[in-house]
Amino acid sequence: MTTPAPRETFALSVNGRVEQTDVSPDKPLLWVLRDELDLKGSKYGCGRALCGACTVHVDGQPTRACVTPVKAVAGKSVTTIEALSETELGARVQRAWTSLNVPQCGYCQSGQIMAVVALLKAIPAPTDPQIDEALSGNICRCGMYPRIRKAVHELAAGGFA
């Protein structure tokens, strides 16, 4: 096991703001967001890109922040759950989530919502297989998958505007 590389200064674009951080380039984005920038909406669930609880957008693409070294996002635009309600689609997804009682424990939902927003941006009316392909990387241990699927379909049909 090698120890992490020494600190460097990175200018990160997070939620539309440029943030200066002085961290090891190997430090995963998740821990930079949570512990340097105090954005704790993105969650730790597995540390190995297996559960999706840490999902953020990097240049619009859903990305597992727990395995993304911060050096990999230099010069790119990072969006987290905290900024999602500022977009129309993000706010709609959040309304769908509250209206349909999608969260139970809620711990995975930041990641689920980030994945769903990316899905609906890329495919405004996804089929069930497309939902499976987009969201099967996000584990919900409370098992709210049927509600997530329902919410996606209702959003695709124009709901929660």
């Binding site: 890109a49 693409q61 990999a72 994945a115 899905l119 890329a122 495919i123």
Partner: peptide
């Protein structure tokens, strides 16, 4: 998939 790219998890 455009909604879940290899690069979501696999880094350089």
């Amino acid at each position: 998939a455009p909604t879940l790219q290899c690069g979501a998890c696999h880094q350089d």
